[in-house]
Simulated assay, not measured.
Amino acid sequence: MTALPAYIVDVRRLDQFSAIELYDMLKMRVDVFVVEQECAYPELDGNDPECLHLRLMNGPELLACARLWRPQADANPRIGRVAVSPDHRGKRLGEALMREAITECEKAYPNEPIELSAQAHLQRFYASFDFKPISDEYIEDGIPHVDMLRDAR
């Protein structure tokens, strides 16, 4: 396994990105979720303006990204759109991204549980961060998923 590359954590609201930064992040998400996973779904779902966007960067290069948000006032905070650049897979960036996403989610939403909708084959990965299944498996956009929850800390 290749060593984890050096990275900096960048967390911002959507309107704080330059056009190029926003393009790079959205392109990665489309490349991973729509093209690579062959999943036709509305990537631009109208929720991004309400989210915090976390990026792992190496200089100007985007390594990985995720979004953090609360979909409704009475809902738990969520981590979603977790993506690692295909050029940087196998370098433990997924683990780094999740650690940083949990940290930032806990800063933004202290003492609250965190939810995510996991692709079913990634349950063990998310369980390593103390997420537990809270739903049966279901199909979302043609891919088996399961809802998972990490208790408040």
Rank of each mutant, 00 (worst) to 15 (best):
M1Y: 06
M1W: 04
M1I: 04
L4Q: 13
L4W: 07
L4T: 12
A6N: 13
A6Q: 10
Y7F: 15
Y7R: 06
I8W: 02
I8Y: 04
V11R: 06
D15N: 11
D15Y: 10
Q16L: 10
A19I: 13
I20W: 10
M25Y: 07
M25P: 00
L26Q: 11
L26H: 12
K27Y: 15
R29C: 08
V30I: 13
V30Q: 14
V32I: 06
V34Y: 03
V34Q: 10
E36M: 08
E36S: 04
E38F: 01
E38D: 13
C39Q: 10
Y41T: 00
P42K: 04
L44I: 15
D45L: 07
N47A: 10
N47C: 10
P49Q: 07
P49L: 05
C51G: 08
L54S: 05
L54T: 02
R55Q: 14
L56H: 05
M57C: 10
N58D: 14
G59A: 09
P60L: 15
E61M: 14
E61A: 15
E61D: 15
L62I: 03
L63S: 09
L63Y: 12
L63M: 12
A64Q: 06
C65R: 04
A66Q: 04
A66N: 08
R67Y: 11
R67I: 04
R67L: 06
L68H: 05
W69H: 13
R70S: 00
R70L: 12
P71R: 03
P71L: 09
A73M: 11
A75M: 13
P77D: 03
P77G: 03
P77N: 01
G80C: 02
G80D: 06
A83P: 03
V84S: 02
S85Q: 01
D87W: 06
G90V: 11
G90E: 11
R92F: 06
R92K: 15
L93R: 02
G94P: 06
E95A: 15
L97H: 01
R99C: 12
E100T: 00
E100K: 14
A101P: 03
I102D: 08
T103M: 14
T103G: 08
E104S: 07
E104H: 14
E106T: 09
K107G: 01
A108F: 03
Y109G: 09
P110K: 11
P110E: 04
E112W: 01
E112I: 05
P113M: 02
I114C: 01
E115L: 13
E115W: 11
S117D: 11
A118R: 04
Q119E: 14
Q119W: 10
A120F: 15
L122E: 01
L122H: 03
F125G: 07
F125A: 08
Y126E: 09
S128V: 02
F129K: 01
K132L: 12
P133S: 12
I134A: 06
I134E: 13
E137F: 00
Y138A: 07
E140K: 12
E140R: 11
D141Y: 05
D141T: 01
D141S: 12
I143M: 00
I143H: 03
P144M: 09
V146K: 02
D147T: 01
D147W: 00
M148N: 02
L149N: 09
L149M: 14
L149P: 02
R150M: 01
R150D: 03
D151F: 01
